[in-house]
Nucleic acid binder design. Structure first.
Lengths: 329, 329
DNA sequence: TTGTATGCGTTATCAT
DNA sequence: ATGATAACGCATACAA
């Protein structure tokens, strides 16, 4: 049990606490001889630097908080990879927190992060209202990944454009009854739907929006309902890959052939979408890069708290695979 | 900037720090009137309880560390769900750390956890040597999920039995050239291979082991090599689902039909394996339950540090889906 | 290069 | 029920 303290190490090494402190942070001002001796006796004694105490004493420290909406969605793992990649070399430490798919834990998770006094928070997939996010940001710099919030640093893909690309792809294939399997409306997540509407309107096609949720099962249920209508769609765009998998489940369940009878497009380009048996046509948002840029934004924010909010928007591209084809007819 | 402190709240509410402290932990010994007034002025001032300072002063606290090997593998998300499920109601806080697929970050991540003075660590998928794990456990109780380490609390599925089940399934289908796509050898992860050997020997069949890695790409490469031999296997058991996906990739790439020409079995029952287009036959290890039990083990350990190591082993079952069939012949 | 003193924001132990 | 005060383990001037 973390009993041995700096004091103990200092005494054992015959030096002062302060010197031990310096040695452990390999700060300048310690002779290499002393440092080595100190580190040696430290490890002999089983000493572990107490980051809690250090953070308190130094008022802050180098810990960043990372909040991920959902561990089951591969895109967040991609973003985390990107974040870690660019942050590891800077000597920052990360403390992770995870929400739930319905966003109900977001606020408390963010509060927990604040309570551990992280210097900044990078949040991926925040489902919070803009107002609540601003409230958090008032106390701790908040960098928003994969969502845009006015007045806050944010890094995201252009969702309007991504959805437009997906819709246009289906239109180009000759589809006209194209449904959009929509996520529940919440601040910051309306752009995919808007992009769909935009493309449909431009083509003079009637939009067909099926409200759904961030859940494979629910998406499957809603797709089933969609396919049971009098004139079912010949193509479906899902608000994300998870929902697209649900749509695939439903199609398989009803014996509807994909893509022969039904085309399906996902959104995210998560790794399961790349499985050969699935080969889901989907919008690639480059999660890893989003993570990297978000981390850089965090660093920049720490560097200058009063800089104007940074907004970075990446251009998505469509990964055409095997779940889309011209309509049967 | 977390500026407002307990002192400020105390002053504003006209009471002492101590009382504010009690109020915020809703400890007994503070009148409901005072408590409400304190909490009110606290939130008015935008006060956020400083967990860092609290942990230091109370020597410890109620934070548990959770270490996950890899965010891209869905089973770890399952385990995390289980952990959080049983821990949330206990008022414990979780701090997460994540390794990399090759295990190279395990040790430093665990050290980081120790430095933030978590009271116990639940580690899922540790790739560390037994010795290193014991070294960690000497300072902080370590609960091992999905792996067994002698002398430590551990919760896992019976890997020997799982691999035996998978192998027997293929034998029953009539296969005789059954290859095992193996993970790199490391402490604690030899049981799947052993179960395979056991079943093959019992059936009088020659084992065919292809060394591979924890990576979809590498598994694909190794499968390709396997399929290029003079007498390629008619069935492959992968050490986990990720590797099985790699095998599927390779088969698709070479135009080998699954399951008609090649049967493939995975291990983990991760959610991508359940996608209708994939429908991977795999061994279900019940990750969520493993997480729950690991969390319970952690609680028990905290309750009695000197209790004998707890070892829980769940029985896996085979989820037979669409990637296995009798050999072509 | 090394040692000393003070403070970080809280909890905990006494009092009152 | 409430208040004063000493730890907690470390960082950080500052002095030597």
């Amino acid at each position: 049990m973390s009993h041995v303290t700096m004091e103990d190490v200092a005494k054992a090494a015959g030096v002062s606490r302060a010197l031990v402190s310096l040695a452990y942070r390999n700060a300048p001002g310690v002779s290499t001889a002393s440092r080595e001796r100190i580190l040696k006796t430290g490890s002999d004694l089983g000493y572990r630097h107490n980051r809690i105490a250090a953070a308190l004493a130094s008022k802050g420290g180098k810990t960043l908080g990372v909040h991920l909406l959902d561990l089951h969605n591969d895109v967040f793992a991609d973003m985390f990879d990107g974040i870690r990649e660019t942050l590891d070399s800077t000597g920052h430490h990360l403390v992770l927190s995870v929400g739930t798919i319905d966003g109900s834990l977001d606020l408390s998770a963010l509060h927990t992060l604040q309570q551990s006094r992280v210097t900044a928070i990078i949040a991926a997939g925040l489902l919070l209202s803009d107002a609540a996010a601003h409230e958090i940001a008032a106390a701790t710099p908040l960098i928003c990944a994969s969502r845009v919030i006015d007045g806050l640093d944010s890094v995201s893909a252009d969702d309007h454009e991504g959805a437009r690309l997906a819709t246009q792809h289906l239109i180009d294939l000759g589809h006209s009854r194209i449904a959009f399997l929509a996520n529940p409306p919440s601040d910051g997540y309306g752009l995919r739907l808007a992009g769909y509407h935009f493309a449909m309107r431009a083509a003079g096609l009637p939009p067909l929006v099926a409200p759904s949720a961030y859940s494979r099962d629910i998406a499957a249920r809603d797709t089933t309902a969609l396919l049971a209508t009098a004139t079912p769609p010949t193509a479906i765009i899902a608000h994300n890959d998870q929902a697209a998998f649900g749509a695939l489940d439903a199609a398989a369940d009803r014996g509807v052939a994909v893509p022969e009878e039904l085309s399906i497009v996902g959104y995210d380009d998560s790794s399961p979408s790349r499985a050969p048996g699935t080969a889901l046509t989907t919008v690639a948002i480059r999660g890893r890069e989003i993570g990297q840029l978000a981390a850089q934004a965090a660093l920049a924010r720490l560097d200058d708290r009063s800089a104007p909010p940074l907004r970075t928007i990446l251009t998505p591209r469509l990964a055409v695979r095997a779940t889309t084809a011209p309509p049967a007819r």
